[in-house]
């Protein structure tokens, strides 16, 4: 039996080989390790780590976000509410039906369809977005309550051509299959980094009464804290690996085994 037959591609090997073991301190500083991931992303955009041949065409096939939000015909809105809020650092002003959730507002009005509707009742996590720094469920948030708030969606995580480290880690660790839960998983995981940095406790935390300090999350801690995001494809172990890698900045090996 050979272990880890294809642990790293030769390209990855070359580029990772010289990575210094990272200090915990750095993880704590940034929540997760940027330096490691700047490298990872260099690889991704060079087409080495992630060859996205399919990508180019589809990546730009769709205007992602409508700058001008088209008005609806008057009788399409009952109990209209005017809301102004920030989405991925651009300000949006929009007249909405008071019943409209943040999820539907993002998807149907603003054109940001990355956030997904898996249940519409708070039971799956597919609609997770980050509002004022906290991960929340956009399907149970009335858009009308978002006045003055700042919303980050999956579309807002990458900066220019640089993926967010968490996105890169999900790609590397195949933290998804169908990809439908993925925007929610990644938003959740990004916010989790902040929670870990703040030392927030979870049900898996053994010493609740100890003072909060930055935590390096164990597998069990990651799994418990990510349990609000259902993945029907069952990518859980890969999601845990991706988050671990993103948090520590250290290469987490990928295991697949072959018999001789």
């Amino acid at each position: 039996m050979k272990q880890n037959k294809t642990q790293l591609t030769p390209e990855e090997h070359r580029l990772f080989g010289d990575l210094m073991p990272e200090e915990l301190e750095e993880v704590i500083q940034s929540g997760f390790n940027r330096r490691h991931f700047v490298k990872l992303m260099g690889l991704a955009s060079a087409g080495l780590l992630a060859s996205y041949a399919l990508g180019a065409e589809q990546l730009f096939a769709r205007a992602v976000e409508t700058d001008e939000i088209p008005d609806l015909i008057p009788n399409a809105i009952e109990n209209g509410v005017n809301v102004t809020f920030k989405v991925n650092s651009s300000s949006k002003s929009i007249l909405i039906d008071s019943r409209m959730t943040l999820l539907d507002t993002l998807r149907e009005r603003i054109g940001l369809t990355g956030s997904k509707k898996g249940c519409d009742h708070g039971q799956c996590g597919a609609c997770t977005v980050i509002v004022d720094g906290h991960r929340v469920l956009s399907c149970l948030t009335l858009a009308a309550t978002c006045q003055g708030k700042s919303v980050i969606t999956i579309e807002g995580l990458a900066k220019e051509n640089e993926l967010n480290p968490m996105q890169a880690a999900f790609l590397k660790h195949d933290g998804f299959q169908c990809g439908f839960c993925t925007p929610g998983q990644i938003c959740s995981a990004v916010a989790l980094m902040k929670e870990a940095k703040e030392g927030q406790a979870s049900f898996a935390t053994t010493h609740i009464s100890a003072d909060a300090k930055p935590i390096l999350l164990s597998d069990e801690e990651i799994a418990e804290r990510m349990s609000g995001n259902i993945c029907r494809c069952g990518a859980y172990p890969n999601i845990v690996a991706a988050i671990k890698e993103a948090q520590t900045g250290k290469n987490v090996p990928q295991n697949w085994l072959f018999t001789d």
Binding site: G125, T128, R135, L137, S188, S202, G228
Partner: peptide, 9 residues
């Protein structure tokens, strides 16, 4: 109870 997202809300 619930999930991190729900407890945040």
């Amino acid at each position: 109870g619930a999930s991190a997202q729900i407890r945040n809300m």
